[in-house]
Protein backbone atom coordinates (compact mmCIF):
# COMPACT_ATOMS: atom_id res chain seq x y z
CA UNK A 1 0.00 0.00 0.00
CA UNK A 2 1.22 3.51 -0.76
CA UNK A 3 2.07 5.55 2.26
CA UNK A 4 -0.45 8.25 3.05
CA UNK A 5 2.51 10.57 3.38
CA UNK A 6 3.48 10.29 -0.32
CA UNK A 7 3.93 13.90 -1.36
CA UNK A 8 4.82 15.16 -4.82
CA UNK A 9 8.23 16.68 -5.42
CA UNK A 10 7.56 19.94 -7.25
CA UNK A 11 10.10 22.41 -8.59
CA UNK A 12 9.99 25.45 -10.86
CA UNK A 13 13.49 26.52 -11.85
CA UNK A 14 15.48 28.27 -14.58
CA UNK A 15 18.25 25.66 -14.54
CA UNK A 16 18.29 22.27 -16.26
CA UNK A 17 17.53 19.00 -14.49
CA UNK A 18 19.14 15.57 -14.66
CA UNK A 19 16.76 12.68 -15.40
CA UNK A 20 18.83 9.97 -13.76
CA UNK A 21 19.39 11.80 -10.50
CA UNK A 22 15.67 12.65 -10.28
CA UNK A 23 14.79 8.97 -10.84
CA UNK A 24 17.36 7.94 -8.24
CA UNK A 25 15.83 10.36 -5.72
CA UNK A 26 12.48 8.54 -6.03
CA UNK A 27 13.78 4.97 -6.07
CA UNK A 28 16.84 4.94 -3.77
CA UNK A 29 16.45 2.48 -0.91
CA UNK A 30 12.93 1.40 -1.90
CA UNK A 31 11.92 -2.16 -2.70
CA UNK A 32 8.21 -1.75 -3.42
CA UNK A 33 8.49 0.15 -6.71
CA UNK A 34 7.79 -1.97 -9.78
CA UNK A 35 7.46 0.76 -12.39
CA UNK A 36 9.04 4.10 -13.15
CA UNK A 37 7.63 6.22 -15.99
CA UNK A 38 9.39 9.42 -16.99
CA UNK A 39 8.21 12.04 -19.42
CA UNK A 40 10.44 14.90 -20.46
CA UNK A 41 9.35 17.69 -22.78
CA UNK A 42 11.98 19.42 -24.92
CA UNK A 43 12.09 22.62 -26.93
CA UNK A 44 11.70 22.01 -30.71
CA UNK A 45 13.20 24.31 -33.35
CA UNK A 46 10.12 23.94 -35.61
CA UNK A 47 12.16 23.07 -38.73
CA UNK A 48 14.66 25.81 -38.04
CA UNK A 49 12.08 28.60 -37.59
CA UNK A 50 12.57 28.91 -33.84
CA UNK A 51 15.70 30.13 -32.03
CA UNK A 52 14.33 29.81 -28.48
CA UNK A 53 11.25 29.64 -26.29
CA UNK A 54 10.62 32.08 -23.46
CA UNK A 55 8.76 30.44 -20.58
CA UNK A 56 6.85 32.83 -18.34
CA UNK A 57 5.19 31.67 -15.14
CA UNK A 58 3.12 32.94 -12.22
CA UNK A 59 5.54 32.52 -9.28
CA UNK A 60 3.90 30.83 -6.32
CA UNK A 61 0.78 29.81 -8.18
CA UNK A 62 2.74 27.68 -10.67
CA UNK A 63 4.20 25.57 -7.85
CA UNK A 64 0.88 25.47 -5.97
CA UNK A 65 -1.06 24.32 -9.00
CA UNK A 66 1.51 21.62 -9.88
CA UNK A 67 1.37 20.42 -6.27
CA UNK A 68 -2.44 20.33 -6.31
CA UNK A 69 -2.47 18.26 -9.53
CA UNK A 70 0.31 16.02 -8.21
CA UNK A 71 -1.61 15.25 -5.01
CA UNK A 72 -4.67 14.27 -7.04
CA UNK A 73 -2.54 12.01 -9.27
CA UNK A 74 -0.96 10.28 -6.26
CA UNK A 75 -4.34 9.59 -4.70
CA UNK A 76 -6.09 8.54 -7.93
CA UNK A 77 -3.39 6.17 -9.24
CA UNK A 78 -1.91 5.10 -5.89
CA UNK A 79 1.50 6.38 -6.95
CA UNK A 80 4.48 5.62 -4.74
CA UNK A 81 6.26 8.76 -5.87
CA UNK A 82 5.78 11.71 -8.20
CA UNK A 83 8.20 14.39 -9.36
CA UNK A 84 7.31 17.33 -11.58
CA UNK A 85 9.87 19.93 -12.59
CA UNK A 86 9.15 22.83 -14.94
CA UNK A 87 11.73 25.28 -16.20
CA UNK A 88 11.17 28.98 -16.84
CA UNK A 89 13.10 31.64 -18.74
CA UNK A 90 14.78 31.31 -22.12
CA UNK A 91 15.10 27.72 -23.37
CA UNK A 92 16.96 26.75 -26.55
CA UNK A 93 15.95 24.04 -29.05
CA UNK A 94 17.09 20.65 -27.76
CA UNK A 95 16.95 21.73 -24.11
CA UNK A 96 14.60 20.31 -21.48
CA UNK A 97 11.42 22.19 -20.53
CA UNK A 98 9.53 19.85 -18.24
CA UNK A 99 9.99 16.55 -16.41
CA UNK A 100 7.42 14.24 -14.84
CA UNK A 101 8.34 11.00 -13.09
CA UNK A 102 5.71 8.67 -11.65
CA UNK A 103 6.52 5.54 -9.67
CA UNK A 104 4.08 2.80 -8.75
CA UNK A 105 3.85 -0.91 -7.98
CA UNK A 106 2.78 -1.70 -11.56
CA UNK A 107 3.26 -0.08 -14.94
CA UNK A 108 -0.30 1.00 -15.75
CA UNK A 109 -0.56 3.23 -12.70
CA UNK A 110 2.83 4.79 -13.43
CA UNK A 111 1.94 5.44 -17.10
CA UNK A 112 -1.47 6.85 -16.17
CA UNK A 113 -0.09 8.96 -13.32
CA UNK A 114 2.54 10.60 -15.54
CA UNK A 115 0.04 11.10 -18.37
CA UNK A 116 -2.57 12.63 -16.03
CA UNK A 117 0.02 14.94 -14.48
CA UNK A 118 1.12 16.24 -17.90
CA UNK A 119 -2.43 16.69 -19.25
CA UNK A 120 -3.45 18.80 -16.25
CA UNK A 121 -0.12 20.60 -15.99
CA UNK A 122 -0.47 21.80 -19.60
CA UNK A 123 -3.98 23.19 -19.11
CA UNK A 124 -3.95 24.34 -15.46
CA UNK A 125 -0.43 25.26 -14.36
CA UNK A 126 0.22 28.96 -15.07
CA UNK A 127 3.01 28.85 -17.67
CA UNK A 128 3.07 30.57 -21.06
CA UNK A 129 5.41 30.03 -24.01
CA UNK A 130 6.59 32.80 -26.31
CA UNK A 131 8.51 31.99 -29.49
CA UNK A 132 11.74 33.69 -30.49
CA UNK A 133 11.98 33.51 -34.29
CA UNK A 134 15.25 32.38 -35.88
CA UNK A 135 15.20 35.37 -38.26
CA UNK A 136 15.30 37.77 -35.30
CA UNK A 137 11.73 39.03 -35.67
CA UNK A 138 9.56 39.30 -32.60
CA UNK A 139 7.87 35.98 -31.98
CA UNK A 140 4.31 35.27 -30.95
CA UNK A 141 2.82 33.77 -27.84
CA UNK A 142 1.91 30.16 -28.47
CA UNK A 143 -1.87 29.66 -28.59
CA UNK A 144 -3.57 27.13 -26.36
CA UNK A 145 -4.76 24.04 -28.23
CA UNK A 146 -8.23 22.50 -28.04
CA UNK A 147 -6.48 19.13 -28.27
CA UNK A 148 -4.87 19.81 -24.87
CA UNK A 149 -8.28 20.52 -23.31
CA UNK A 150 -9.60 17.30 -24.89
CA UNK A 151 -6.64 15.34 -23.48
CA UNK A 152 -7.41 16.70 -20.01
CA UNK A 153 -11.14 16.02 -20.29
CA UNK A 154 -10.64 12.31 -21.05
CA UNK A 155 -9.75 11.84 -17.35
CA UNK A 156 -13.26 12.81 -16.18
Amino acid sequence: MPSVTTVPIIRVQSTDFDLQSEIDALTAGRKNIGAVVTFSGLCRDEQGALSALELEHYPGMAEAEMRRIGEIAIERFLLLGLTAIHRHGKILPGENIVLVIATASHRQAAFDGANFMMDFLKTSAPFWKKEHAADGTAGDWIAAKDADDAARDKWR
Binding site: L55, H57, H86, K122, T123, S124, P126, W128, K129, W141
Partner: peptide, 10 residues
Amino acid sequence: IGIFPPMTGG
Protein backbone atom coordinates in the same frame (compact mmCIF):
# COMPACT_ATOMS: atom_id res chain seq x y z
CA ILE B 1 -6.07 38.84 -8.69
CA GLY B 2 -4.10 37.30 -11.58
CA ILE B 3 -5.32 37.93 -15.14
CA PHE B 4 -3.81 35.93 -18.00
CA PRO B 5 -4.38 34.04 -21.27
CA PRO B 6 -5.00 30.28 -21.47
CA MET B 7 -1.94 28.40 -20.27
CA THR B 8 0.58 26.87 -22.67
CA GLY B 9 3.22 25.25 -20.46
CA GLY B 10 4.46 21.70 -20.43
